[in-house]
Design a protein around this nucleic acid. Sequence first.
RNA 1: GCCGGUGUAGCUCAGUGGUUAGAGCGACGGUCUCAUAAUCCGUAGGUCGUAGGUUCAAAUCCUACCGCCGGCACCA
Length: 651
Amino acid sequence: MSDKFYITTPIYYVNSAPHLGTVYCTLAADTIRRYQAMLGRRTLLVTGSDEHSQNVERAAKKKGLSPYDFSTELAAEFQREWNLFGIPYRFIRTSDPRHHETVQWLFGRCRANGYIEKGSYTGQYCFNCELYVNDAGPGDPCPDCQRPTETVTEENYFFKLSKFEKPLLELYEKQPDFVVPDYRMNEIISFVRGGLRDLSITRSNLQWGIPVPVEGHHVFYVWFDALISYLTAVRDEGWWPADVHLIGKDILRFHAIYWPAFLMAADLPLPRRIVAHGWILKDSVKMSKSRGNVVRPEPLRQVIGADPLRYFLLREIPFGQDGNFSYDALITRLNADLANGLGNLVSRTLTMIRQYRGGRIPAGTPDEAIRQQAEETIRAWRAAFDAFEFHRGLEQLWSLLGAVDKAIVAYQPWILAKKEDAESQAKLDTILSTAAEVIRIAAVLLAPVMPEAAQKIWSQLGMAGIVESERLDRLAWGGLGKDQAIGEVEAVFPRLDMAKTIAKIEQIDEAEAARIDALLGRAPAAESQPAWQRPEGVPPLAPEITIDDFARVDLRVAKVLAAERVKGADKLLHLTVDVAEEKPRTIVAGIAEKYAPEELVGRKVVIVANLAPRKLRGLVSQGMIVAASLENGPPVLVGPWEDVPVGARLK
RNA sequence: GCCGGUGUAGCUCAGUGGUUAGAGCGACGGUCUCAUAAUCCGUAGGUCGUAGGUUCAAAUCCUACCGCCGGCACCA
């Protein structure tokens, strides 16, 4: 087993400020790092900022800053957040000259090994998403943002990803836990089995990026930039390879396929594991800027504290799965588990020790059942944390705490205290020392999850030193000092009032939202009247066109003669339509989810009649049906209000 | 359409062949008093998605179907 442990979070895109999702990932990484440190390893957590992109260029311009200065402000915002959360980290910025060097160096190695090739590429590009849209035709909208794509031809450098199909599959086979959870590993395997295409890794249409060391104006594609920061951060220091790349499930493919392929091409060691977590949903709905339901972390931290938030996120959400966040669930769980559970147990135990034993933890014979359960809990905790199943470890520990609460009631120490016989006094010593010992063990186990609270409990128990310098691999029953004097007793987890707590969070959130808008250079919401907001699902207007542009589009009224489902496709209908031509046309339309074939026959619809034919599922579609829809909404067919002969042109 | 997962008490989930199917939370009733209106006890009566099948015995294995989730394909 290695004595070092290097973990990374993604480097976060400076397009937005930290939100609950990034905080979740970073807190989890911090917990894993602390856990590993308590196993005696040298540890390092790297996080950072991903700064090169056209979006950043644009946002900076809007704010009147250079991309670098804009990014500097945002990078500072991230660092500030991690500082406030008490997370030790090393921060890497992609704009750092050291990083530029590393990327160019890696490019050089891949090239020298024959895995880089020059080629040209023509495709539909979405400037908003900075993505090529596979298989899109001219004028097609972007699948993600619905904005129109533009036809772009670039001479680019390609990474020969296709050569790594086999090596990657061998890697996955040899290391089935390369990707965690296992169902994500399966997804990756089946994706790679489906074949890999070479990857264009340079762009010539932006400036704000890392220059490719060749003639021309190329910069590197974001993924042949961002991923490499994991390497830049620790070059020549012996930390590489990373032990864990902790990421969100949305960027798994880049980490599990591209990244190992880049490293193989450059003859470098591969990271040991890619661990993908799920998304946090707000009230069961995905968080997004357009929905305006993004949860800002600062108000939560300020009102309930970093530790309780850490506990909630790791306990409530089975790691790897999507999880739900709501104020109600948060406060309910914190009150139940932390205030009523752990906090109250510490409080009642220490109070009894003070009242019945003068503030000294008596040396007693342990309660055997509790001792056994405690030792089992330590084992289970280790197993759960090694497998990134934090919620299971926490669950186990809490059932131990519950057992202690039950035992206290069974022993009735308040009655024992009033009896003077030796047997009663011995029993009193047993329950008090047993409870105190469990609390000591809990403090050590919890230290990676709630470092501050664990330290408080540790000190209240009268333990000397720093709880995090304890070794989890040596943790066992019986670590209390003889006749140890306890410290000052104080509530560690105050009970939260649901309504007041939520009100406080929302109040702080208002100011925080405004501060972040200003930081990102977004229009500040006018004070008197709220800024107009585009209704959900309504896409922004396409760029202006002239009448001539419009005249090039030939829209015609057509009548559906026949309709049937297309085999092997959910969304496609095969339509035969009459457009007053010599022969009826075939049109393949993606409306099968909304319209049954039989209800279409005989209807008059509008088609784009002069669209270049396109092959879909083996059928040649000669045109496109006009339908209206919101983003991701069902299409609604458009037809004439009054009857009009087929073949009529729309102008 | 293909691949994978999943469907268990109001909620979140545990339970991979064998006594009357469990936990936590929430709710209701009761209790102790060491404790943060905490703890503890009891109650809540869930066709274990549906229909078949295998078996002495199935929530647990098999088949089909339905719902949901994810990936891919496909579309807009």
